[in-house]
């Protein structure tokens, strides 16, 4: 119940924020941060709760991104059809990858490697065929109107992405109290013990990856609407794959608020780095990498683990 209240407070506070006249820069900053909190939640469901570490979530992101853009540019359909198609495409790609990987029992490092390899295959294909615009990419013509899912101000996408993020928080909250979630966590902790208790491991993992594929593709689709452009590197490069796992790990794997906390921390950190050290290429990401090592080394439970730990300590101190 406390979790639900926290989600409600967060959603409300963020929703009314545009009324206080934030700058465009701030809105863009928050929108991207929220988007990665949302995409990170996708990684968190499979990786944090389910223990299946994907190194290639960008394959779903990119599938959604390409499908939305392609339906508009190549087939002349509207963005709404594009969103629906993106959702389906993400689920289908996830189903195919999940079916193959889990049917043949790939776990741990092998699963990480195969997801990485699939992302690479998609990148090369996108780079080589005509319908994706090959290496040059594709551009959606600018024509702002709600029907086109393009907005003049920054608030439009801010609210949409906020809604997605709040939805993903609710999803994680609901997951923790559902059979599906209980099974997923059991699989993470001990597959054999779970099987002995009647858990269908293959089906549970497959459901999880399809859910993650669909939600990540939807995120990719909105990303496409925001920037109206796609190329193989944006869609299937390594950066999205790395960032979604990073926000979950930094924030706290297998927790409702982990990805949000992680996204907030990472985006703030990279902004501060940009302010103090200037816009130098590489330094930002080098910091991310160092942070990943440090987190795994010293705070394997993430910021959320640290926060709840110190909260408990404070409470204890206050009681005594």
């Amino acid at each position: 119940m406390r979790t639900l209240a926290a989600i409600a407070v967060f959603g409300f506070a963020m929703a009314v924020l545009p009324a206080f006249g934030p700058t465009d820069f701030m809105l863009s900053f928050l929108t991207l941060m929220l988007l990665f909190a949302y995409l990170g939640q996708g990684w968190n469901i499979l990786g944090g709760y389910g223990g299946q570490f994907s190194f290639g979530n960008t394959v779903f992101f990119g599938a959604g991104l390409y499908v939305t853009v392609i339906t508009q540019v190549q087939f002349g359909l509207g963005p709404w059809a594009g969103l629906a198609a993106a959702l389906l495409a993400g689920a289908a790609v996830a189903f195919a990858i999940g079916w193959l990987s889990f049917r043949y029992g790939l776990r741990g490092s092998y699963f990480a490697l195969i997801t990485l390899a699939f992302a690479e295959v998609f990148r090369i294909v996108a780079n080589s065929i005509a319908i994706t615009g090959a290496g040059a990419g594709l551009q959606v013509p600018l024509d702002p109107s709600p029907a086109n899912l393009q907005f003049v101000g920054r608030e439009g996408f801010y609210w949409i992405i906020l809604a997605l993020t709040v939805g993903s928080l609710l999803l994680a909250w609901q997951l923790e109290r559902s059979r599906f979630g209980v099974y997923l966590i059991a699989i993470r902790d001990d597959e054999d013990a779970a099987r002995a208790l009647g858990v269908d491991i293959f089906r549970t993992k497959l459901r999880a990856i399809v859910l993650v594929g669909a939600m990540t593709a939807l995120g990719g689709a909105f990303y496409g609407q925001m920037f109206l452009y796609v190329d193989p590197h944006i869609a299937f490069g390594v950066s999205v794959s790395v960032e979604v796992l990073l926000v979950s790990i930094v924030g706290g794997m297998g927790t409702v608020f982990g990805p949000l906390l992680g996204a907030a921390a990472l985006h703030t950190l990279s902004e501060v780095a940009r302010e103090t050290m200037g816009d130098t290429p590489g330094l930002n990401l080098a910091l991310y990498g160092a942070l990943l090592v440090v987190m795994v080394m010293f705070l394997p439970k993430g910021l959320f683990g640290l926060a709840s730990f110190s909260a408990r300590r404070l409470l204890k101190g206050w009681r005594s």
Binding site: P281, L283, L292
Partner: peptide, 22 residues
């Protein structure tokens, strides 16, 4: 834990690569 090693070596590679870029 194997997963952690995976993440740490990933982190190291990100650092090295981006320092080289820098």
């Amino acid at each position: 834990r194997d997963e952690n090693i995976l993440l740490v070596t990933l982190g190291i590679s990100i650092v090295i690569e981006n320092l080289a870029l820098f």
